[in-house]
Design a protein around this nucleic acid. Structure first.
Lengths: 135, 135
DNA sequence: CCTTGACCTTCCCATGATGGGAACCCTTAT
DNA sequence: ATAAGGGTTCCCATCATGGGAAGGTCAAGG
């Protein structure tokens, strides 16, 4: 299987497959005589693992750790769970930040007439002009 | 006022002030004879505006647009509101993505015993082994 | 047999927003 | 005069990804 087919089979772009190889996330595959990378079912399985981990928001570094644990048949599931739990925490922190932004923006947008007139509480807020905060 | 003082007064790092200037977000300030940037109250006000917009998650490009509208006394508030509304939408999309990740991860973490044994539904999921989805 | 098109290879560049640090210049206080 | 603490420019790194150029390879068809 060439890289393009491995890409189709795994959902990881050829570009990314090469990148993951270059940073050591995945092992260099065999090559044909003409220097083409050759992938088998195992490699595709690994790529799908990586894809799934990335889809769940794990960083490449975390993904590397998870890959290592996956391949270590004597791992303690606690190690995996710790990584997942920490990641959940990071995601929730991020979500809270974004929600805070949304909350403020919705309030401001609600207060903005959104018509032809220049008066705009959104700009007033950005400019630090503390308009009435009650809604 | 030198750049360090403008930084303190605005909450924007000196590094970022120079960067914002380099990309044209803010105007190049006057310089002293010895080539130091000199800032006044207006510049600091602009920097605070930028800081606030960035804090609310607007991209630098959106911030540039907002700055332009702020300075345009004949703007229509609808233009500002449109940008804010679009941004709210983008944030909510992002939040939904992150929440989806969290939901999946919490389910998996819940199913993982997190002890010394190697058996791990989190890794099973990443590996594409469809474990029991009901909990 | 040779061309064509679709692959593959490596290498460099770009993104967005920010920080780090080097090398060097300026100012102020001791 | 010197040291400390500014400032200046310039380059590099991050993180994960894509774009594209220049060139090698392979399979199908005229």
């Amino acid at each position: 299987m060439n890289i393009g087919q491995a890409s189709n089979a795994s959902g990881v772009s050829a570009k990314m497959i090469r990148y993951y190889e270059s940073i050591g996330l995945i092992s260099p595959p065999l090559r044909t005589e003409s220097n083409y990378r050759v992938y088998g079912a195992d490699e595709v399985h690994t790529l799908r693992f990586v894809k799934r981990a990335r889809t769940l928001g794990f960083s490449v570094e975390e993904t590397a750790t998870l890959l290592g644990l996956w391949q270590d048949k004597t791992r303690a599931s606690a190690e995996v769970k710790d990584i997942a739990t920490a990641h959940i925490g990071a995601l929730e922190t991020k979500i809270a930040e974004l929600q805070s932004m949304v909350k403020t923006l919705k309030h401001l947008a609600h207060c903005c007439s959104g018509d032809d007139r220049p008066n705009c509480p959104i700009l007033d807020d950005l400019a630090g002009t503390p308009a009435n905060k009650g809604h």
